[in-house]
Design a protein around this nucleic acid. Structure first.
Length: 571
RNA sequence: CGGGGCGUAGCGCAGCCUGGUAGCGCGCCUGCUUUGGGAGCAGGAUGUCGGAGGUUCGAAUCCUCUCGCCCCGACCA
């Protein structure tokens, strides 16, 4: 490709809205442009990267025995009503009406559509197992799209669904996909980790997320430093810590804490360690108020509480509800005498002399003891795992914390969709049975963003070779006839050798071309210059590490070829 | 959904408080010079000041409403 013909509008400055590296560089380097919040156009460079990723995904899934299909993007509402997700999915599901007034869902995922396809045409155990996948645009009307391709509303996802004669076979396929995913992310050049995860809205009872490790990641994960246990903090198990305090250390005493409702401020005012504080969170679970008690320095694990309550909806109560329940301003809630079920973390039960809200504006209490002051509270593990916690799986390990970008997720679904939607087959004995299922997603566009989060420097992107838009950039640094002729000849020869070349033939100064090549992130660069012509050499530079070597013109193709082979083989 | 902020040229921003008819840098166009890390000089084009209404002789500026966008939190395959 000649750079002079390529639509790659690079920007010297990033739009103010871009906050993370991948968003900044994808925009500055001319890979994407925003059309609306969370909705992006892919320019030629961006599309080339997406195609590279898709190709790797297709190769590995085909190799693993899956078959590609393409399902519609618009699904009739009746299908989603069958699975009850029309009601349950909430406002994230974009709904549209056709000219006749019929309701449709803009597909955020395709369990219903695929089950409908399979239940119509797959009737015998002889047709199973089956694993079908598609690569398609998805739409999720996120409350808060952010960070460019990292969390868009419209994005490209690979989703796969498998159907089986029994659960054992579904678990076998789960492992098969798990292995395929590991190969895919490795080939994309990503540093990742598979972690145990909550199943969320998709449902099912076993899942792993594939997390690309990056400080800018949205997900918090913990991994044991001794064994191989790793989990999203939403899911991470904890060992029960501390014994309930048998007796109170002293009587409950009210203290004046004017205007300090935020726990950090109360800590500062009273000069007591934050571990002695009890945080009282008021939540709404399926319309009813509940209270959760945690030590001041801990975070609630919403997934754990939701599971314990058997609730489908759980969110923090609004300020008005909190004030009404505690008869105090927000920030002064305590569990004493609350007219709602109270759940306490074991660490709270272990305190004999805690500090918590007084249910009275501008007041707290000290001397709090759960057994005495809120005897009705149920004690259960409620907190989010953090670095330093003891591993729940092995004897001596402790958790370390990481940030991750979720690029893939595999689920064992069981019959969550196939049972209500009557996706059945006849077994060898002629008996009708429901097909157990699995489903498997990969965020294609998110991989592009994650790769940049993991591979960039101050000058721009450093693409892993297998997903780079081009393998090598040729920079013609000069206008001399010999320079141009040599560059042209290299462009031809590299192309003939099967290497993807971006030939910067623009009438620009060398500095501009160097800056653009770095920003766009082409892994290799060949510079053809006047000085080199005299020596019969060109310069070969690697974007990562910046190593420059002079190579004789006659050897340039072979040297580039070797570096490309090495980069692709490592994947 | 709670909190905060921003919409002025393609991008980054100033101007707004204290109303007087829009400016800077980058980019873009033309010419000359320059040519190994985002060149210099000279000339030039580009704005419904997000939208609607109001106040006023006069609104980018003040008031009301509205739309869009961003950030933090909550939530989320």
């Amino acid at each position: 490709m000649r750079h002079s013909k390529l639509l790659a509008p690079t920007l010297r400055e990033a739009p103010a809205e871009a906050q993370v590296a991948s968003h900044v560089f994808l925009t500055r380097a001319g890979f994407i442009r925003k059309l609306a919040a969370g909705i992006y156009s892919l320019l030629p460079l961006g599309l080339r990267v997406v195609h590279k990723i898709e190709r790797i995904v297709r190769e590995e899934l085909d190799r693993a025995g899956a078959q590609e299909v393409l399902l519609p993007m618009l699904h009739p509402a009746e299908l989603w009503q069958e699975s009850e997700r029309w009601q349950k999915y909430g406002p994230e599901l974009l709904r549209v009406k056709d000219r006749k007034g019929a309701d449709f869902a803009v597909s955020p995922t395709a369990e219903e559509a695929i089950v409908d396809l399979v239940r119509r045409d797959v009737k015998s155990f002889r047709q199973l197992p089956l694993n079908l996948y598609q690569i398609q645009d998805k739409f999720r009307d996120e409350m808060r799209p952010r960070a460019g391709l990292m969390r868009g509303r419209e994005f490209i996802m690979k989703d796969a669904y498998s159907f089986h004669t029994d659960e054992a076979d579904a678990h076998r396929e789960y492992q098969n996909m798990y292995d395929a995913y590991a190969r895919i992310f490795k080939r994309c050049g990503l540093e990742f980790r598979a972690v145990e995860a909550d199943t969320g809205a998709i449902g099912g009872n076993k899942s792993h997320e594939f997390q690309v490790l990056a400080d800018s990641g949205e997900d918090a994960i913990v991994a044991c430093d001794q064994c191989d246990y790793a989990a999203n903090v939403e899911k991470a198990e904890l060992l029960p810590e501390g014994q309930p305090a048998a007796t109170a250390a002293r009587a409950l005493e009210e203290i004046h804490t004017p205007g300090v409702g935020v726990i950090e401020d109360v800590v500062r005012l009273l000069g007591e360690p934050i571990e002695r504080f009890v945080k009282t969170l008021i939540l709404v679970a399926d319309g009813k108020l509940v209270a959760a008690l945690l030590r001041g320095d801990r975070d609630l694990n919403v997934v754990k509480l939701k599971a314990a309550l058997g609730a489908t909806e759980l969110e923090l109560a609004g300020d008005a509800a909190v004030s009404a329940a505690t008869k105090a301003k927000v920030g002064f809630a305590g569990p004493q005498g609350l007219a709602m079920p109270v759940y306490a973390d074991p660490e709270v039960a272990a305190l004999s002399d805690g500090i918590t809200g007084a249910n009275k504006t501008d007041h707290h209490v000290r001397g709090f003891h759960l057994g005495r002051d809120c005897a009705s509270a149920k004690v259960l593990d409620l907190r989010t795992a953090a670095a330093g916690d003891r591993c729940a799986r092995c004897a001596g390990g402790h958790y370390r914390a990481f940030r991750g970008i979720e690029v893939g997720h595999v689920f064992f679904l069981g019959t969550k969709y196939s049972a209500p939607m009557k996706c059945t087959f006849l077994d060898a004995g002629g008996k009708e049975q429901v097909m157990p299922m699995g489903c498997y997603g990969i965020g294609i566009t998110r991989i592009a963003a994650a790769a940049i989060e993991q591979n960039h420097d101050a000058d721009g992107i450093i693409w892993p070779l297998p997903i780079a838009p081009f393998h090598v950039a040729i920079v013609a640094a000069g206008k001399e006839a010999e320079v141009l002729a040599t560059a042209e000849e290299l462009y031809r020869a590299l192309g003939a050798a099967g290497i993807e070349v971006l030939f910067d033939d623009r009438d620009e100064r060398p500095g501009v071309k160097f800056k653009d090549a770095d920003l766009i992130g082409i892994p290799l660069r060949v510079t053809v210059g006047k000085k080199g012509m005299a020596e019969g050499i060109v310069e070969l530079k690697q974007r990562r590490g910046g190593v420059v070597v002079k190579v004789p013109i006659a050897e340039a193709v072979a040297r580039v070829r070797a570096l490309c082979d090495e980069g692709l083989a490592r994947a």
